[in-house]
């Protein structure tokens, strides 16, 4: 049983119950129970291979793309199991979007990058698209830096700008949950801090789950921290508690750098 140090009665956005995941014979996640609170930032931490990224990818069924993956248990997004066969995965990934480790802008203009999602969801009206692009870039704190070069290639932006563009691209389809897989690990410290500031601003309107190897980043940005080890969720609680007085010795050893 995972010790949960959270006392706040925040509304749960996602309820994960007895989640196990197998890559063929290898069990990467073992009976994980975790509640993801709405409008909070949940950080997933743990050593390489502990299952945190695998867990993140189960939340919008990205693991479905990998051959031989078997998922057991349930993930309820606002009460509905996202692993039911009738679930429209494209729509699910619109509601739960993901930002990856390395910025991956499409080789097209800044404008077209952000317009990509709304367009494939059928939006053609130019005025509406313009509004969405401006709003998304504002939300991603990028508008001021790119408004003069909206129609130039996105590949000319800096790494940090590209990552914020990817966030803007995600926001353009109005998701509810943002999954971030080490979103600043390829960025310099200033770009990293900009992303962290942005995450703080975004949590007012979105539920955010972030995987990070950077312990200080987890401590700085998140409200809730979950520690994974060998596919198990070891401890889950308020970030302040996890980083000042963790209950489990394994959490203590990991976050204080005495692991292994």
């Amino acid at each position: 049983m995972v010790k949960n140090g959270l006392n706040e009665p925040n509304e749960n956005k996602i309820l994960v119950k007895k989640l196990s995941l197998f890559y063929k014979d290898f069990q990467a996640l073992k009976n994980v129970d975790l509640d993801i609170k709405a409008n909070k930032i949940t950080a997933l931490i743990g050593p390489s291979g502990c299952g945190k990224s695998t867990f993140l990818r189960t939340l919008n069924r990205m693991n479905d793309l990998i051959e031989g993956v078997k998922v057991e248990g349930t993930i309820l997004l606002e009460g509905e199991n996202i692993y039911e066969p009738e679930v429209d995965v494209v729509n699910l990934r619109k509601r739960i979007g993901m930002v990856f480790q390395r910025p991956n802008p499409f080789p097209m203009s800044v404008y077209d990058n952000v317009a990509y999602g709304p367009r494939i969801h059928g939006l053609k009206n130019k005025r509406q698209l313009d509004e969405i692009i401006e709003k998304s870039l504002h939300l991603a704190a990028l508008w001021d830096e790119v408004n003069a070069r909206l129609f130039k290639s996105a590949l000319g932006l800096s790494g940090g700008q590209q990552q914020r563009l990817c966030i803007a691209r995600l926001l353009a389809v109005e998701p509810e949950v943002l999954l971030m897989d080490e979103p600043s690990s390829a960025l310099d410290p200033i770009s990293t801090l900009k992303i962290e500031e942005l995450i703080q601003i975004l949590k007012k309107n979105y539920t955010i789950v972030i995987v990070t190897h950077n312990m200080q980043q987890a401590a700085r940005v998140s409200d809730v921290t979950a520690f994974f080890l060998n596919g198990e969720l070891i401890e889950y609680g308020s970030t302040e508690e996890i980083f000042t007085r963790p209950k489990d010795q394994r959490t203590e050893d990991y976050i204080s750098g005495r692991f292994g």
Binding site: M215, T244, T251, E252, I255, S256, G257
Partner: peptide, 9 residues
């Protein structure tokens, strides 16, 4: 060293 947990305490 950015101490954490017991180290921080």
């Amino acid at each position: 060293q950015q101490p954490m947990a017991r180290d921080l305490r």
